[in-house]
Design a protein around this nucleic acid. Sequence first.
DNA 1: CCTTGACCTTCCCATAATGGGAAGGAATAG
DNA 2: CTATTCCTTCCCATTATGGGAAGGTCAAGG
Lengths: 131, 131
Amino acid sequence: MNIGQAADATGVSAKRIRYYEQIGLLTPAARTESGYRQYDGGALHTLSFINRARELGFSIAEITDLLALWRNDQRSNAKVKTIALGHIEALRQKIAGMQSMQDTLQHLADSCDGDARAECPILDELQRIAS
Amino acid sequence: MNIGQAADATGVSAKRIRYYEQIGLLTPAARTESGYRQYDGGALHTLSFINRARELGFSIAEITDLLALWRNDQRSNAKVKTIALGHIEALRQKIAGMQSMQDTLQHLADSCDGDARAECPILDELQRIAS
DNA sequence: CCTTGACCTTCCCATAATGGGAAGGAATAG
DNA sequence: CTATTCCTTCCCATTATGGGAAGGTCAAGG
């Protein structure tokens, strides 16, 4: 199976597949005589694993760890859980920050009636805090 | 006032200040004879405005627009509000996505007792969806 | 058999918004 | 006068990907 078909089958673009191979996340694919990369079911499996983990927000570095655990020892559950919990906590903090940001902006926008002559504290707020 | 003091006063690193000037977000600072950039109250004001907007998650491109509105016509409230509302909506979607991510991971982690011999569906889930 | 189009290869550049650091000049404190 | 701190520009690195060029390959149809 060529890289394009593997891409279609897994939702990972050919560009990404080559990149993952280049940085060592994937072991180099077998090649045909003419140099085309070949993928089999196992490779597709790994690619889909990676794709799903990316969708869940894991970084490439984290996926490197997850893949190593997945490949080497499916019973290293504690490590897997530790990685997941760390990621959950990071997500929690990011979400809290963005939520606070959103609340502030919503508050400002609510107070701005969008009329050219009336109050719009959005700029005022930026300016106030700025000074 | 030199760039280092401006950085301390506004919380924008010297690196960032030079970068903002380079990309045209800031008008080039005045220079001393020896080439040192000089900053006055107005510049500090602008820098703090930018910093606050960055903290609120506005992109440089959005801040460019905000700054233009701020400088040129403080009564373009409708445009300002439009930019803010667009940003709020983008934040809402990002937060929802991350929240969903976090929920999924939390669910998986809850089902994983971290014992080497027991169930840990984190990898299983990745694998299941992967197949 | 040859052409055409779709596919593959590698290589380089670009993104967003910084940080790091080197090489060298300038200001300041002792 | 010198040591230290600050400034300058310039180049490279980051993260994870996309875009595109130049060129080789494969399959199908005329």
